[in-house]
Amino acid sequence: MWFIRRILIVSRKDKKTNDEVLDMANTGRSLYSTIRKRQMKFTGHIYRARGIEHLAMTGKINGKKSRGRQRTTYVDSLDTWANLEQHTRSQFMRSSCERQIWKTMTVNACSRHGT
C-alpha cells in the first residue's frame, strides 16, 4: 500500500485509510479474488481427474463422523462462495466435468462485487 501512497503523494499524516487511497487510485484489492479463482480452477481439475484426490475432496472415505457440529470443508466453502442458490451441490460437481460450464461459473463467481 505504501507504493500507491507514494505515487499519489499521500502522507500517513493525512489520515487517509487504505480503502480511500485505493479509491483515489481507482484500484481494488484483487488478492482475494485471485486466490478464489485459483481454488476454483484446482477444484475443477481434481473433479475431472477422478483420482484419490477426488475421493478425499468429496468426502467419500469410510469411517465415523466426529461428534458435534461438522467442520466446514473446502468444497462447502467454495459452494457457498460460488453462490449455491443457483446450483445444487450435485450440479456444482457435475458442472466441473464440463470445462466450458466450469470456466463460465468460475468467471461469474470471481467477477461479482465483494469478492
Results as ranks from 00 to 15, higher is better:
residue 73 T to Q: 05
residue 41 K to P: 00
residue 82 A to L: 10
residue 43 T to P: 00
residue 56 A to S: 12
residue 36 R to A: 11
residue 55 L to S: 03
residue 112 R to H: 07
residue 41 K to V: 11
residue 82 A to S: 13
residue 69 R to M: 07
residue 6 R to W: 03
residue 76 D to W: 04
residue 80 T to P: 00
residue 8 L to I: 07
residue 65 K to P: 10
residue 93 M to P: 00
residue 68 G to L: 10
residue 112 R to W: 05
residue 83 N to H: 15
residue 71 R to C: 06
residue 62 N to C: 04
residue 90 S to C: 02
residue 42 F to W: 11
residue 14 D to V: 01
residue 20 E to H: 04
residue 102 W to S: 05
residue 92 F to H: 04
residue 89 R to Y: 11
residue 80 T to C: 02
residue 110 C to M: 02
residue 78 L to F: 04
residue 59 G to I: 02
residue 39 Q to T: 03
residue 5 R to W: 01
residue 8 L to T: 05
residue 63 G to H: 10
residue 49 A to H: 11
residue 68 G to F: 08
residue 94 R to W: 03
residue 79 D to Y: 14
residue 64 K to G: 09
residue 101 I to D: 09
residue 96 S to D: 01
residue 82 A to N: 04
residue 11 S to L: 08
residue 73 T to H: 05
residue 86 Q to E: 14
residue 100 Q to R: 14
residue 38 R to W: 09
residue 52 I to D: 06
residue 34 T to M: 07
residue 66 S to E: 14
residue 75 V to E: 09
residue 108 N to M: 12
residue 22 L to N: 05
residue 106 T to M: 15
residue 37 K to E: 11
residue 65 K to D: 07
residue 68 G to H: 10
residue 45 H to D: 04
residue 18 N to D: 15
residue 26 N to W: 03
residue 30 S to P: 00
residue 27 T to W: 05
residue 40 M to A: 13
residue 74 Y to P: 00
residue 27 T to M: 15
residue 49 A to K: 14
residue 63 G to D: 09
residue 25 A to I: 05
residue 53 E to D: 12
residue 64 K to N: 13
residue 1 M to G: 13
residue 95 S to T: 07
residue 68 G to P: 08
residue 46 I to T: 08
residue 30 S to F: 07
residue 20 E to N: 01
residue 5 R to T: 00
residue 101 I to R: 12
residue 70 Q to N: 10
residue 81 W to E: 08
residue 67 R to Q: 12
residue 79 D to C: 12
residue 41 K to G: 07
residue 102 W to R: 09
residue 73 T to D: 05
residue 73 T to F: 07
residue 46 I to V: 15
residue 102 W to G: 04
residue 91 Q to C: 00
residue 14 D to Q: 13
residue 70 Q to P: 11
residue 101 I to Q: 14
residue 100 Q to V: 13
residue 95 S to M: 08
residue 35 I to L: 14
residue 33 S to Y: 05
residue 31 L to P: 00
residue 46 I to W: 00
residue 107 V to I: 10
residue 63 G to A: 08
residue 59 G to A: 04
residue 8 L to M: 06
residue 50 R to Q: 14
residue 29 R to D: 08
